[in-house]
Computed example of a mutant assay.
Amino acid sequence: MNKKWFWLLMVVLGVVIFVGGPLFVQYTHWPQGTTGHGDWLSFWGSYLGVIPSGLIAYFVVKIQIDAERHNEHLKRNEDLYIQDLREIHELINEIRLTIVMMTTVFEDLKNDIGDAEYFAKTYIAISEKNKHQLRYNEYFNNALETLPKGSSSSMVNEIKDMIKSLERLEVNTEFYLNKIKKGENNKNHDTEYKEYFINDFRMLGIKYEMVARLIKKEISKYYIVNEHI
């Protein structure tokens, strides 16, 4: 039997028993020889009055419990989301340290004081301590996969762009140093990779600033800040 029809039948049966029964007793003078059962009808009237009151109380409590569960679920998801954002923020903080330590080397390269080889070797030496060099992209990708679908699209896109900038810088430094190691570099290569390094490092810095700002903005959505404090 269809579930819908089953419950409809149960409702009809309940009405017949709990409403029709008392009325039958009252107005048919059953058992035979009686003149009615006012007390019986009064009892059933009181009894039936309890049923809707009980149902109302049940549904009120159920709605409150469901609302509390929903709020707890939202709070738990928010806590996990903030935790994920903080983990990503810790990851990009390592990039910040690399940028800070590489700034002088970058300025020297840009102003023709340093050369491409010194920049590449210095970057590799610094980034190795901070889990960079291609492997580092896996940390970001894994962190992004844990973010819920409702995450800020602009933040996620900027993080992906920053990863691409980081990857370009890593690939170019590795590739350039391999050429030097194999003795395949020349003056043209030095000039070419110098431009790569300048553009890659500058873009990485821009993307880092954007991502850091967006992550802080996203986290701040879940805190109530009193501006008068």
Rank of each mutant, 00 (worst) to 15 (best):
N2M: 06
F6I: 13
W7P: 02
L8N: 12
L9A: 15
M10A: 15
V15R: 01
V16H: 04
V16N: 08
F18L: 11
L23Y: 13
V25H: 12
Y27A: 01
P31K: 04
T34V: 04
T34F: 08
G38C: 01
G49P: 00
I51F: 11
I51H: 06
P52Q: 05
S53P: 00
G54I: 12
L55P: 03
F59V: 08
V61D: 08
D66M: 07
A67F: 11
H70P: 00
N71Q: 08
E72R: 12
L74T: 07
L74G: 00
L74C: 05
R76D: 12
R76I: 08
N77P: 00
R86N: 14
I88K: 04
H89W: 00
I92N: 02
I95N: 01
I99T: 05
I99W: 03
M102P: 00
M102A: 01
T103Q: 13
V105W: 06
V105D: 07
N111T: 15
D115S: 10
D115M: 04
K121D: 08
K121L: 13
T122V: 11
I126H: 03
N130L: 15
Y136A: 14
Y136W: 14
N142T: 05
A143F: 04
A143S: 10
E145R: 12
E145C: 02
S151T: 13
S152W: 06
S154H: 09
M155Q: 09
V156E: 03
I159K: 00
E167H: 12
E167V: 09
E167D: 09
N172G: 00
E174N: 07
F175Q: 12
N178D: 13
K179I: 00
K179R: 07
I180W: 08
K181V: 05
T191S: 13
T191V: 10
E192R: 12
E195Q: 14
E195C: 02
Y196Q: 07
Y196I: 04
F197I: 02
Y208H: 10
E209M: 07
M210K: 15
M210R: 14
I215L: 10
I215C: 05
K217M: 07
Y222W: 06
Y222C: 07
Y223T: 14
I224W: 11
H228M: 15
H228Q: 15
